[in-house]
Write a protein that binds this DNA or RNA. Structure first.
Lengths: 340, 340
DNA sequence: CTGAAAGCGCTTACAG
DNA sequence: CTGAAAGCGCTTACAG
């Protein structure tokens, strides 16, 4: 069934049907009523391929989510969708694998859907450097800084990863720990885990800074393990630390998911959190609060990241300049850190 | 940039370019090489709107996932994607909200993408009854039975929810528990939680059967709470049970996610699992194994569900008849159930 | 093996 | 306010 069937059945031309379907103002009430009745009766749905193929004007927003299973992003997406809807717009969400190229996907979306703007949840700096120049619409990168990328149509809303990780580290240091194992997150293969702009790299830099500031040596060889962003990865990494760094008294993981894995690894070695090993995560996902013991962590402000991301995108769509905003994090004191 | 640009630049006609792009056999090696070189040089990507609009023959498979955050489905999707790829096909994944209509989405996908077949992860029986008749391609419903729906093009691969829940219940009963609180899952509003074909309804039926079989009364008023499929929901439901059913010694939740919430609720009341309250979940998601204590649960066989789902779909695509297969579940003995 | 042309189902100036 | 027509970027019989 096509628009043509509706035209025949309603006695109007296809152009008029199209106008009704698109809420075009120049249509008589009579035509609108008649056509909508037929559309309803036949259960007609326009073919969006044809629509997008022809449509030149941009409509709706797109949200590109890097990492299907990312629990932090899951919360942000929901919040964004409802905010976009509240602003009277529609939103399409695209999920891609953690290791796929989000900018290439965005390029395709631009070509084929012509969105008013795009929100990126997470992003790999290299992908942006390489291909973002070809994206024309306003975009906001959420949870990752984009100020140093220097694109005029790319804003960002993020948490200060360096400061956040330093704050997490400070919790452990303040509690008297100075033998701290650290679990970093895997980025693009063979990148230096300690320098660079990806979130794990920034967080590890924060850990090191916090250490050095107190005159405590930071020895990656001994203290650091790199892991996938998964419970399984955290489990392995913590296991390795527990074995090879026996006088360690605390572990910091740069994501809660890995911390949850570490928690179980510690128990499986016959140790307890926080009695034997203190533990702190990062992100502040819902699950952290359901752990036993409740996980101490640094919470990224999901509501604000979503709200400001959408606000800035809407603003930029109206011709505003790119903005780079830092949203404050919050330290969550759970039950997983013990004073020495 | 369009196929026309490639045609001009390569000196061939658009038809030939299209043939090369679609791996059509009737193209000279010379033309193929020249055209691919230009495509590569210009970084051309065909517009899939135009492609799908014109294309009559079906290509690729679609996976429709009901519930963006469903951790059980997440594992299945990954497995399916790799199996479809191994079979030399492509797969598109569509995620929708738990409360959106998956069959309507499938209908749109059929109209616009013309897939060879569709895998549904989760499904609401009412939606299928109402609209699945309009879906023409072979489909497989995964994790939910479809045999009683009676559609010739709809197979299913699922776990026996009644037997699985009865097995979970038996673990508690065998351990000597006879005052068991039960957390059911929310379906379509104001449905009877105890009769019907949705997974929670079937699982609750299994719980009741297992109870009655031992001559133990099943009193929904006292024993049953209905909850959203979330940690938060499980937390609330368990809290309510703990307060209003004080001599309860065990809780069964029809999903692990709710069980994780219940676990924390029990601790927050100053009680311990399994010393004071035994706990068992359902599904066997990865997280259950990371809980402290490790969660006892009934595991759905994710690999087999994915494998058989894909196999049956491929088979049906070649003209096979609809098949309804039951995959055995496995009882996982964690650390969360104590013998009384 | 290749080209020219019709057409997929829409939207959108252009007339009237 | 409405209709007739061009055209979005592809694919696919149909000739040759």
């Amino acid at each position: 069934m096509t628009i043509k069937d509706i035209a025949i059945r309603s006695g109007y031309a296809v152009g008029t049907v199209s106008r009704v379907l698109n809420d075009h103002p120049d249509v008589s009430d009579e035509a609108r009523a008649r056509i909508l009745a037929v559309v309803d009766e036949l259960g007609f749905k326009p073919n969006s391929n044809a629509r997008h193929l022809k449509q030149r004007e941009a409509r709706g927003f797109s949200i590109v989510v890097k990492g299907t299973h990312n629990l932090l992003f899951a919360g942000i997406v929901e919040e964004m969708q409802s905010r976009i809807k509240d602003a009277g717009h529609s939103a399409n969400v695209y999920y891609l694998d953690e290791f796929d190229n989000e900018v290439e996907l965005a390029l395709q979306v631009c070509r084929e859907q012509k969105p008013l703007g795009i929100l990126f949840l997470g992003g790999d700096r290299d992908n942006f450097t390489r291909s973002f120049g070809k994206v024309a619409c306003p975009c906001v990168l959420v949870t990752t800084r984009a100020d140093t990328l220097g694109f005029a149509n790319l804003s960002s809303v993020s948490t200060d990863d360096v400061a956040g990780a330093a704050a997490a580290m400070d919790i452990l240091l303040d509690a008297g720990h100075d033998k701290i194992g650290i679990i970093g997150g895997e980025n693009s293969k063979n990148a230096d885990p300690l320098s660079g702009y990806n979130s794990s790299q920034l967080r590890l830099a924060g850990c090191r800074q916090a250490s050095l500031k107190r005159g405590i040596d930071f020895n990656p060889e001994k203290q650091l393990r790199i892991s996938r962003y998964s419970m399984d990865g955290g489990y392995e990494a913590a296991g390795s630390l527990l074995e090879q760094y026996p006088d360690m008294t605390a572990i910091l993981a740069v994501s809660d998911v890995m911390a949850i894995g570490a928690l179980r690894a510690i128990y499986d070695k016959g140790l307890r959190v926080p009695e034997d090993i203190s533990l702190i995560g990062y992100d502040g996902i819902e699950q952290a609060a359901y752990c036993i013991p409740r996980l101490s962590t640094v919470r990224q402000d999901v509501e604000q990241l979503a709200k400001r991301g959408v606000d800035i995108l809407l603003q930029q769509t109206d011709g505003g300049a790119a903005v780079h905003e830092i949203i404050p994090f919050r330290v969550i004191h759970g039950e997983s850190v013990k004073d020495l």
